[in-house]
Design a protein around this nucleic acid. Sequence first.
RNA 1: GCUAGCGUAGCUCAACGGUAGAGCACUGGUUUUGUAAACCAGUGGUUGUGGGUUCAAAUCCCACCGCUAGCUCCA
Length: 737
Amino acid sequence: MPSVCLPDGSSRVISPGLTARELAESIGRKLAQAAIAAVVDGEVRDLSAPLPETENTKVKLLTDRDPEALEVLRHSCAHIMARAVVRLFPGSQLAFGPALENGFYYDIESPTPIREEDFPRIEEEMRRLISLEEPFERFERPVEQARELVRDMGQKLKVEHIDEDLARFPSLSFYRQGEFVDLCRGPHIPHAGKVGAFKLMSLAGAYWKGDAGRQQLQRLYATAFFSQKDLDAYLKQLEEAKKRDHRVLGKQLHLFTISPLAGPGLILWMPKGALIRGLLEQFLRDELVRRGYDPVYTPHVGRLEMYRTSGHFPYYRDAQFPPLYHHPAASALDLLQYRLASGPLDEAREREMGLFLSQASLVIPGYTEAKTPAAKLEATARQAAEILRLHSINLPDFDRAVGSEAQAKALLVWLERQEGYLLKPMNCPHHIQIFKAVQRSYRDLPVRLAEFGTVYRYEQTGELSGMTRVRGFTQDDAHLFVTPEQVEEELRANIELVRFVLKTLGLGDYRVRIGLRAKGSDKYVGSDDDWNAAEAALLRIVKSLDMPHTAEEGEAAFYGPKIDFVVRDCIGREWQLGTVQLDYNLPRRFDLEYIGADNKAHRPVMIHRAPFGSMERFMGILIEHFAGAFPTWLAPEQVRVLPVSEKAAEYARGVEARLRAAGLRATSDLGSDKIGARIRAATLDKVPYMAVVGEKEAQSGGVAARDRVAGDLGTMGVDEFIARLDAEIRARRLPGG
RNA sequence: GCUAGCGUAGCUCAACGGUAGAGCACUGGUUUUGUAAACCAGUGGUUGUGGGUUCAAAUCCCACCGCUAGCUCCA
């Protein structure tokens, strides 16, 4: 007899064909009404689906309290939204409409573009559909019939999807709601009335199947909840996050600015922001030195030759600022060489190349008109020859070269003789030179070279955002040169360092993500043994430290496995910080070695680590985490002295001087506003402490201390006030801690 | 780079084809203040830049620059 096992441990015998809904009814009428879907053997299913006729099937009925139910609800709401759009915008083509962590979207191609002004109409239509409480009815069709069905509905994208990805399935499922039918795997809520509250959020472009080479669709973002209360709470949380936006607070509190004239994506640290950054750097540097790192400094540019050796140039050149050459012809020849070296390209890569070349303002006569890849390469070579001639560069090897490969090689020989520099995209090649400057013995290892190193990457314009996505940033970088046996210990020490520092800043809640090789792929460098050992070490460490972690195959860099740190801030948002990466590649490219105990040369393993990513990004995250109210040890202004009236101004100046002499960052506000207004100003400036002084304090020689959050702390002596702040600063106490 | 939206005083915003305005901030004055906003006055703009349409453009059109939300990318 088939039976089910319920979460409370009880089991029931069921009749064949019984659905989850009928099961719920048999348990209780209320449960049946509240049920949204069911988890059957770990899989979320419709209530209307018959339960499997096996013994001891694990069944859990989901209600609006279960997170999985919310996902089902949102997916169903995506259907309701699509239905409303199809009604209002006849001829709309539907693509995908999945649930997300905070809502859902639907990608749609409509004959008349949808605009944000249309949101109220769409929402109204959705409300009407929801009030009908129509059921979601599932049905299945063999794949051929399914294809005909979507074709007859005029849903071209769905036809494409079946042809490309779904044809291998014997049958496909659909859900019907009134006149609206959508190809969909499900599951869905029993009827539309379960949607308690929803809201259309935004409109964006998205490529069909995420492929930039395909047409762009309109993506409607929205969210849905079981109750208006939950939606309101979510919207309030968004408001809260918005108030913490580091771009807003950074402006308000004069921490940093970005000037289009200085350059988009290039952070200008204002005095207050710079002070905080300096304190953070000092804190990190002290901690690194304590843990055996050696600070170094390297310049902002490096010879192209070095980046050719490391492989950074020219392979990632579309993400780099253009190289700096002395020879006036070199930039053009460099681009032409790059084009020739790339050889014949297919259509998609040719499009990318065209974009890149036009961005670099390189015009090749006859290039665009050339029909075949070979003709394009010929045009490129002609232009190179022309430039060589104009600049009287005699290059017989190029003239003799046959084919784009040989031509590229000849040009490269010339280019390599030219003086050329690159704004550094990474610090590692420089640090490697420092490692190589001294003969290294196994006794010297690990060598840990640390630098707050500024690097430059030419991010796409649409990618730039405040301090978190920029074109120049300073990594809290270090490179560790270790023996294979030392890898595990170094990784462990690294995680412990991150753990300590993040905890100090109140970001103690985080997990690590481990990037492993994709099985059976040959794109990785390094021996299998090294990889196996390194991957096992990574997993062993996170397990032994009892840390939340996820391991993801195929997420490793081609030169080694890596760990990413993902922290959760005080309002529950996750931020990806830096990474720790093992590297077998650069030691080989730069031919690094150390002398082992056997008196033979051995190749070290490199560990790249920038656990906080960059100072810019980390600062941005801290601003949001603290909502601009930095703990006293980091606050740019720690105390503001506020004389009650001008009569106490002289005394206030004296107090300020004493605070400064004690090492506190103090100022006085001697303005003519009333004391209440100046307290308000100091509070809005997020100054942690105020020292209110009037005639009483001037007589007793004290201050009336005030905390920016707790308010009046009462009167105390100046020394007592200083001691109190000093203790807090030494302990690096956190707000509320 | 792509899609959509947006650029008005230092900041937040109004004016939406017909004389560019408010609050805050700033400056000067009055007030001499006791724990989150005293009062009065004043300064401040070639409406992102450049072109076009119009008798007339912040407003409509085009190009560029920048910003925002996504997409794509991210060694």
